[in-house]
Write a protein that binds this DNA or RNA. Structure first.
Lengths: 298, 298
DNA sequence: CATCGGTGGTGCGAAATCGATCCGGCTGAA
DNA sequence: TTCAGCCGGATCGATTTCGCACCACCGATG
């Protein structure tokens, strides 16, 4: 009989493309993945991967195994969500995933209030890296910015929140220096490969030179604070930062709509219901800030 | 994330009804089952069993888990059979399940011949206790006696073999003593709770007293050899035993039909094909013996 | 050319798991 | 009752597994 848990390691390796990527995803040492896969191949009597120097590639047999392994995974996920849905006690774990800027600049204080209201609910805020998958039971609630309503996953239950606008910002000091005729060129600050959006008219301030590229939103904010140039930011980030001002003449633009997403099964859970209602109220209160109406346009 | 292999332990406990029964079935210590189930319950945050002094009984949550666990099991079995079906090498493992009397009295020499013909095929003969489940991937080939063709599992591929007859036998010495007017009563020897079958006419020899009950077929043969009384046996057992003779006047009766059963997926495997064809030929050669035609009736 | 980051693979000591064993409680049969 | 058999549970030493530190290799990059 095979060890069912080995199939989990196989899945991670098949998806990650390498033993080390699978190990990182599973949170274990890569040697463990190596051994578990070797064990599974030995027990099945079939080689499921070509062991290339560049990584593991699935063999024909591996492709077949992958299909069944995904069936096992689906059953396992259903098993977890079903049990979680049964758990009606307020006490327990609640995992929330959202984009890092939303967490750091807006919602962490609200989450703190919720945690104080319900001391028995253990909270996990997953705001690092990519968005967690609700279907895979990696989180219970997701707060997402949705640009196109059609991109909403159909198997999830969505609660529409306020709309989110962005603007073009620069350092308050830098604007003053520019008005005084400062010499340095004003540069666009963009995140990694995004480039400069078409809609981002620059208003009165003209930019020069090459863009300044950063890897993440946090670095972007630091750069614009330092007076490096102008950049687009969600209003709730730019308007609340005392060091930043909107670039005169630049228009607001629609970022998208906030959605509170919950899994169909877990939605019945008391603590999920409590949380979504709470966050929904808080988001409504934040609506003017999110829409960029909290400051007078200049 | 739960350990998928824990689900396997859960399944065994849910089916066995107790931790110890599950441990026996899984071939591990019962403490291990205890720990794995406790771990699974902890990670799911739900109690799946009521821990009664008489054993483990599923809770409502456990019932739900059981359903999904069986889905995982089905995927796992498919995974194994699919991989096994791909394996076209003659070298490898081949597991055969059949009733113990068929093995010990008839087919073991044939299996030995097959093993000599194919030294690279590792063979497992599962003839102890209950019949193994082909669908569960516990064996690759099953040799069964089928009384009613409708009871054949539909998902398996069957190859019909010869018909199997049985007769009523007693010790040769005892028959001689009875004809000489021996005093001891002749008793029926029956297996456990079966009782004396209606169709088993006793012919010339009359029995007296209470039946003599044995627990298994091996003990049954020993008892009848010792001259304890008369009993029904398959012809291939009774006719080949030099110490036994058919009870005069007793008719033969149909036991059933032999079937060679293989799983749909594994049937494509070369060594399964080799084995079924080999056994099928040998069974055809045994047909007269199996039908009770190898000795002249008296 | 050297370097650097990525890959799979291996040996060894530490840590977690397992198996053997014992215990107390319960049940049903002698 | 008494006793045997089975149950879940706890303990402890033995065994397996895991994580860490390496190694060799490959390809891209400067």
């Amino acid at each position: 009989m095979i060890d069912w848990d080995d199939v989990r390691y196989f899945l991670a390796a098949a998806r990650g493309g390498s033993v080390r990527a699978a190990a990182k995803r599973l949170g274990v040492n890569h040697a463990t993945v190596l051994r578990r896969i070797a064990q599974l191949e030995e027990r099945l009597g079939t080689q499921m991967f070509e062991k290339l120097p560049s990584g593991y590639r699935l063999t024909a047999a591996g492709e077949e195994v992958l299909e069944l392994a995904e069936q096992m995974e689906a059953s396992s996920h259903q098993l977890e969500t079903r049990v979680f849905g049964r758990d009606q006690s307020v006490r327990g774990l609640l995992r929330v995933t959202l984009a890092p800027p939303l967490a750091t600049h807006l919602l962490i204080p609200d989450f703190a209030d919720f945690a104080r209201l319900h001391p028995d609910i253990e909270m996990d805020i997953l705001s690092s890296g990519e968005l967690a998958n609700l279907t895979n039971r990696e989180a219970d609630v997701a707060i997402r910015v949705v640009y196109d309503r059609k991109t909403l996953p159909l198997n999830l239950h969505g609660l529409k929140g306020p709309e989110l606008f962005g603007g073009v910002y620069m350092s308050r000091d830098r604007l003053a220096a520019w008005r005084a005729g400062g010499p340095d060129p004003i540069r666009w600050i963009v995140i990694s490969m995004h480039g400069i959006p078409d809609w981002a008219g620059e208003g009165e301030v003209r930019t020069a030179g090459v863009p300044f590229r950063v890897t993440d939103a946090a670095a972007q904010v630091v750069a614009v604070r330092q007076g490096l140039g102008i950049t687009t930011l969600p209003c709730f980030v730019g308007d609340t930062d005392p060091l930043l001002v909107r670039v005169p003449g630049a228009d607001l633009h629609m970022y998208g709509t906030l959605w509170l997403l919950t899994h169909g099964e877990t939605r019945k859970t008391e603590r999920v219901r409590l949380f979504t209602e709470f966050v929904s109220r808080r988001l409504a209160a934040h609506a003017p800030l999110l829409a960029g109406l909290s400051v007078s346009r200049d």
